[in-house]
Nucleic acid binder design. Structure first.
Lengths: 110, 110
DNA sequence: GCCGCATGCCTTGCCATCTTAGGCATCCTC
DNA sequence: GAGGATGCCTAAGATGGCAAGGCATGCGGC
């Protein structure tokens, strides 16, 4: 907001990652690309934001990571949404809706 | 989001304060109440969040503060939106719209 | 008269999280 | 063999909200 370059507001990234993973397991690098395509190219998440975020939400049990290989045989760590992660996604979406409602109300207020 | 107690996402507060002041000058304590009524009681901003934010945005020139008296004769510092603040409000609203669009797109993505 | 609450201002310390800027390894293409 | 894409990670810095306090004034109730 204040920072003109900022793509995101702090706090939305977790929700977006969980949402991306709700379409199926994926490794970190792929998540960035999926976020990009899901948002019609409007959103670019930096690696320096993504990997710490993945680590965070794995600690919280919302995703589980497992080393494996991608389709071209390269080593990559695949994350998948856990049950708790699905619940959390729901919570964060509701929280988002709530804030969006607040902003909408503010806008129409006179 | 991650923090269950958090009412806001970081970065939205400035916009909401500017929006509240776009309805007319007001002192800090009153801004909190105006935000509450404008949001139909959904939003409670802590003083510890508000005053530093006011200080910030005054430094940036988006509001200007002046000591005066409220209707009951009590000393209070009144803030009013500057021209630059009006421009900034517009910018922040557009930025919000953009993020809301991203989230909407993410939601419909499959 | 005084106690507590509402109004009004402020500060400090804490903590979460995004950005910038790197480093490292592998693989493909030219 | 150089460069770029893919893939992982980290550290430093800044931002900005929250909790918790402090202070002063004024008003109502007991």
């Amino acid at each position: 907001m204040t920072n003109p370059k900022a793509d995101l507001l702090q706090g939305t990234l977790d929700m977006l990652i969980l949402k991306a993973l709700s379409l199926g397991p994926l490794h970190g690098y792929g998540i960035i690309q999926r976020l990009r395509t899901m948002s019609d190219n409007m959103l670019h998440v930096e690696q320096g934001a993504l990997y710490p975020a993945l680590y965070r939400i794995e600690l919280k049990g919302w995703v589980s990571g497992k080393w494996g290989e991608n389709e071209t045989g390269r080593r990559a760590k695949f994350y998948k949404l856990t049950k708790a992660g699905q619940r959390q996604l729901k919570i964060e979406e509701e929280s988002w809706d709530r804030l969006a409602l607040v902003v909408a109300k503010m806008r129409e207020a006179t």
